[in-house]
Simulated scan of single mutants.
Amino acid sequence: MYEPIRTKSVHSTMAGTTSDFPHRSREEELDIQLAGHLAALLAVTDELRALGPSADLDTAAERLAAQVARLRGGRTPLRAAPAAAGDPVALHRRAHALAGRALVVAASRADTAVAILSAERMDAHAAALSADPKELSTA
């Protein structure tokens, strides 16, 4: 009445069976996620650097780029030219949020170097947000 199934199922429903597609470990997934957060933070940092020169932001950008490269197996992150004028308050808020996300993932994978860097960036952006708005263009 019914024709029998002649091909293997694409879904693995049996315990102990292996599938044909590769799986990433939890560590690999966390590395990918952390590199993404740090790369986004680097992009926002570059935008803030374009608004005004700052040795702190230059150092932070170098450190972020180094960590992204480490997490991506030595591949340096692509860095686009930042957009022209932007809202420094919005950029600092975004950077603070991205640093917080990176801190959570770094803590989850026990990456002390990135956790320290993320916490430092959170502090720097929180300080910039609490500073006088006139000072944000140079922060």
Rank of each mutant, 00 (worst) to 15 (best):
M1L: 04
Y2T: 06
Y2A: 07
E3A: 11
P4L: 08
I5G: 01
I5N: 05
T7W: 10
T7D: 13
K8Y: 10
S9V: 06
V10P: 05
H11Q: 06
S12F: 12
M14A: 12
M14I: 13
A15T: 03
G16S: 10
G16V: 10
T17Y: 04
T17A: 08
T18F: 15
S19W: 09
S19E: 11
D20E: 06
H23G: 03
R24W: 02
R24S: 08
R26E: 14
E28P: 01
E29I: 08
D31Q: 14
D31H: 14
D31V: 12
I32F: 03
L34G: 02
A35I: 09
A35T: 09
A35W: 07
H37D: 15
L38W: 00
A39S: 15
A40K: 13
L41V: 02
L41H: 00
L41Q: 04
L41R: 00
L42S: 04
A43M: 12
A43K: 15
T45H: 00
L48V: 04
R49V: 06
R49F: 06
R49N: 13
L51D: 00
G52W: 00
G52H: 01
T59C: 05
E62I: 07
E62V: 12
R63G: 00
L64R: 10
L64H: 07
A66D: 10
A66S: 12
V68E: 02
V68W: 02
A69F: 05
A69P: 05
G73H: 09
G74D: 13
G74E: 12
R75Y: 10
P77F: 02
L78K: 15
R79K: 13
G86C: 11
G86P: 02
D87F: 02
A90H: 09
A90S: 12
A95V: 13
A97E: 08
A99K: 03
A99Y: 11
G100F: 11
R101S: 11
L103Y: 11
L103V: 08
L103T: 05
V104N: 00
V105N: 02
A107M: 11
R109L: 15
R109I: 10
A110M: 07
A115R: 07
A115D: 00
I116W: 12
L117G: 01
E120D: 10
M122A: 02
D123F: 10
D123G: 04
D123H: 14
A124N: 07
A124L: 14
A124V: 08
H125P: 02
A126G: 13
L129R: 11
A131F: 04
K134A: 14
L136F: 02
S137K: 11
S137W: 11
T138Q: 03
T138H: 03
A139L: 10
